[in-house]
Amino acid sequence: MEHRARAIRVRSYDGVDEVEVPVVPTTTVERAIPAWVDRLQLASRTVEGNIVEWSVQDSHGNIIAPSADVSELDSDEAYTIAPDLTPA
């Protein structure tokens, strides 16, 4: 039988927060990111006036393609969501 994740774990870039998020079928990582950012309360960490791009990685540091189907992610894995930061 085909295994599809019903929930996955997502953690913040600094490891402070981790949440379990239910998987919405046919949703891509890219589309899920705003909800994950919200669940992790990362939105309040964005620098005023700057749009922050986020990327998602597994625990081995492999970047998950934005087009990946969320339900095909591994429910035993913890995915990290990390921001683009531009110090100047």
């Binding site: 791009e53 998602v56 990685q57 625990s59 540091g61 683009d84 531009t86 100047a88």
Partner: peptide, 17 residues
């Protein structure tokens, strides 16, 4: 010369290293 962007690739390398 005036900025550097720490992006997903950087975080990915950091987590692997």
């Amino acid at each position: 010369g005036a900025s550097v962007t720490i992006n997903g690739l950087c975080w990915s390398h950091y987590r692997r290293t």
